[in-house]
Simulated assay, not measured.
Amino acid sequence: MAMSGGRDDGEPMMEMNTTPLIDVMLVLLIMFIITIPIQTHAVKVDLPQPNPENATQIQPDRNKVTIEADGQITWNGSPINELTLRQYLDQTLLLPSEPELHFQPDPQARYSEVDQVLAIIKRANITRLGFVGNEQYRNDF
């Protein structure tokens, strides 16, 4: 009798059967989970609004993106951040003909910052990209 928990001498089993207790606890837990109201969380996000002066920053034939030694990104000479760069790139794709994008990183700029800007340009599906200023490196190698 491997299934019985008692001894073979015929005495009553002294341990409490916990199976019904566990079943009741599981039912109560499920009922508790069902009756809890669904929590709704709202996160406020301030999205950038379209700015009409951004359209004047975009030239119809050629635009220049530079990265300074300190990591500052500039668009046609005016400092911008990565989000604004992406907005400008998206606006250039809306023009009738895609303007050329000239990219000129400073020789002292960190590679990771240059790589991030190139990734933004690639994600924006820019097809007319040119690297400007590579002639300064011709004697380095």
Rank of each mutant, 00 (worst) to 15 (best):
I36Q: 07
Q39C: 07
Q39I: 01
Q39R: 09
Q39D: 06
T40A: 08
H41Q: 09
H41I: 12
A42L: 06
V45F: 00
D46I: 13
P48S: 09
P50I: 06
P50R: 15
P50N: 13
E53I: 13
A55C: 05
Q57T: 06
Q57N: 11
I58R: 03
P60L: 03
R62T: 14
R62P: 10
E68P: 06
E68Y: 05
E68I: 03
D70K: 07
D70E: 09
G71R: 06
Q72Y: 09
I73H: 01
T74C: 11
T74M: 10
T74R: 14
W75C: 02
N76T: 15
G77R: 02
P79G: 11
I80T: 06
E82N: 00
L83H: 11
L85P: 01
L85A: 15
R86Q: 14
R86P: 04
R86Y: 01
Q87D: 06
Y88T: 00
L89K: 00
L89P: 00
L89M: 13
L89A: 03
Q91H: 04
Q91K: 05
T92Q: 07
T92I: 02
L94G: 02
L94Y: 10
L94I: 07
P96W: 01
P96N: 06
P96M: 07
P96T: 10
E100H: 12
E100L: 02
L101M: 04
F103H: 15
F103W: 13
P105W: 10
P105K: 11
P105N: 03
P107C: 10
Q108L: 08
A109D: 12
E113W: 02
E113G: 08
D115Q: 11
D115M: 04
Q116V: 14
Q116W: 12
Q116R: 09
V117H: 00
V117M: 04
L118G: 08
L118N: 04
L118K: 07
A119K: 08
A119H: 05
I121H: 03
K122R: 04
R123E: 05
A124Q: 05
A124F: 05
A124S: 11
N125Q: 09
N125D: 05
I126R: 06
G130C: 14
G133S: 15
Q136L: 13
D140C: 14
D140V: 15
